[in-house]
Computed example of a mutant assay.
Amino acid sequence: MISPKTISENIRYWREQRNYKQAYVANQAGISRRWYVSLENGIVIPKINHILAIAEVLNIEPELLFKKEQKIGKSLEEGDVEEKVKQAIRKALEKLL
Results as ranks from 00 to 15, higher is better:
Ser3Thr: 15
Ser3Gln: 14
Pro4Arg: 01
Lys5Leu: 07
Lys5Arg: 13
Thr6Phe: 05
Thr6Ala: 11
Ser8Leu: 02
Glu9Leu: 08
Glu9Asn: 12
Ile11Val: 15
Ile11Ser: 10
Ile11His: 09
Arg12Phe: 03
Tyr13Thr: 05
Trp14Ser: 05
Trp14Pro: 00
Arg15Val: 09
Glu16Tyr: 04
Gln17Ser: 08
Gln17Ile: 03
Asn19Pro: 09
Tyr20Lys: 08
Tyr20Val: 06
Tyr20His: 06
Lys21Glu: 05
Gln22Ser: 12
Ala23Asp: 08
Ala23Tyr: 06
Tyr24Gln: 15
Val25Cys: 05
Val25His: 00
Ala26Arg: 07
Ala26Gln: 09
Asn27Asp: 14
Gln28Tyr: 12
Gln28Trp: 12
Ala29Asn: 00
Ala29Cys: 07
Ile31Gln: 09
Ile31Cys: 11
Ile31Thr: 11
Ile31Met: 15
Ser32Trp: 03
Arg34Val: 13
Arg34Ile: 09
Tyr36Trp: 00
Val37Ala: 15
Ser38Thr: 13
Ser38Asp: 15
Ser38Cys: 13
Ser38Ala: 13
Leu39Lys: 03
Leu39Phe: 00
Leu39Ser: 01
Asn41Arg: 13
Asn41Pro: 00
Asn41Trp: 01
Gly42Arg: 12
Gly42Ser: 08
Ile43Phe: 02
Ile43Trp: 06
Val44His: 14
Val44Leu: 11
Val44Trp: 06
Val44Gly: 06
Ile45Lys: 14
Pro46Thr: 09
Lys47Ser: 03
Asn49Cys: 02
His50Pro: 05
Ile51Arg: 01
Ile51Cys: 00
Ala53Asp: 11
Ile54Gln: 01
Ile54Gly: 04
Glu56Ser: 15
Glu56Gly: 09
Leu58Met: 09
Leu58His: 01
Asn59Pro: 13
Asn59Glu: 14
Asn59Ile: 11
Glu63Gln: 11
Glu63Val: 11
Leu64Pro: 03
Leu64Arg: 07
Leu64Asn: 10
Phe66Cys: 07
Lys67Tyr: 07
Glu69Lys: 13
Glu69Ile: 15
Gln70Val: 14
Gln70Thr: 10
Gln70Met: 10
Lys71Asn: 12
Lys71His: 08
Ile72Ser: 14
